[in-house]
Computed example of a mutant assay.
Amino acid sequence: MSTTPRLILASTSPFRHALLARFGLDFAAIAPDCDETPLAGETAAATAQRLARDKAKSLAHAYRQALIIGSDQVALLEGQQLGKPGTHEKAVAMLQAMRGQTVAFHTALCLFNSATGHSQEMVDITRVVMRDYSDAQIAAYLAREPDALRCAGAAKSEGLGGALIERIESTDPNALIGLPVFALIGFLAAEGLEVL
């Protein structure tokens, strides 16, 4: 008799948790053990994909019969990777640099089956055109959106950050929030776990 593998989200992100919870699947969100430092010469897509894979695989020893979801996002502005600012000062600098520019958000997904060692991976690229906002608008945004410090490029599109955005070009709006859900549904189905 086969049993459905346990589903693990290798993330403490409340944004990813909320996206996955929408589907009513039984899952546990567990903090991955992963160094998120970009490697020298690594592209944004490669950084995001490596980190998504590393996050998923970091939990494989503890969850040997599970489907483990890893995801990571890297923002790219004129060849420079923008991660999560972490501090108010870094967030201001990032938002000033992004003003009036197009930022490419690379959101990687890895679904790792710890029982079989099989993984499915992809990277979604969402292009975000930022408005030509003022320093005063940056200050107002950061004062009212504390979660911005935990978002790549400090741009929380699903919150007040939408006021900083002129246009989004995407095949999956969920990817910008942190999890390429459309691809994930297909990955889960390939492992025998249907959402519907």
Rank of each mutant, 00 (worst) to 15 (best):
P5Q: 10
A31W: 02
I138T: 05
E42T: 11
Q73Y: 00
L51W: 08
I68T: 05
I8C: 00
S157P: 13
D33G: 03
T126Q: 04
L193W: 08
F27C: 07
T3H: 12
E42V: 09
L109E: 04
M130Y: 13
A48V: 08
R150T: 15
A40D: 15
V103R: 03
I8G: 00
L7G: 02
D172P: 02
D35V: 07
D124I: 06
L67W: 08
L19Y: 03
V123D: 00
L51V: 10
A108C: 10
I30F: 03
V123L: 08
T102F: 02
A115I: 14
A152G: 06
T116Y: 13
N174T: 10
A108P: 09
L193E: 06
A40W: 06
D124Q: 13
Q81I: 08
A40I: 10
V181C: 05
L164G: 13
L193H: 04
M130K: 10
Y63V: 05
I168T: 03
T43W: 05
V129S: 12
E158Q: 14
A140K: 13
A48S: 12
G24I: 01
P173W: 03
T126S: 12
I185K: 05
Y133F: 14
R144I: 13
G117R: 14
G41F: 02
A31Y: 06
R64L: 14
L111E: 12
P85R: 07
V181M: 11
A108M: 08
A115W: 08
L76F: 03
M122N: 14
D72K: 09
G83Q: 01
L193Q: 04
S119R: 15
A10S: 06
F187M: 13
I138F: 10
R127Q: 15
S71T: 04
S157F: 12
L196F: 05
Q81Y: 04
D147G: 04
G83D: 00
I69R: 06
L176Y: 05
Q120H: 11
V103G: 07
L51E: 06
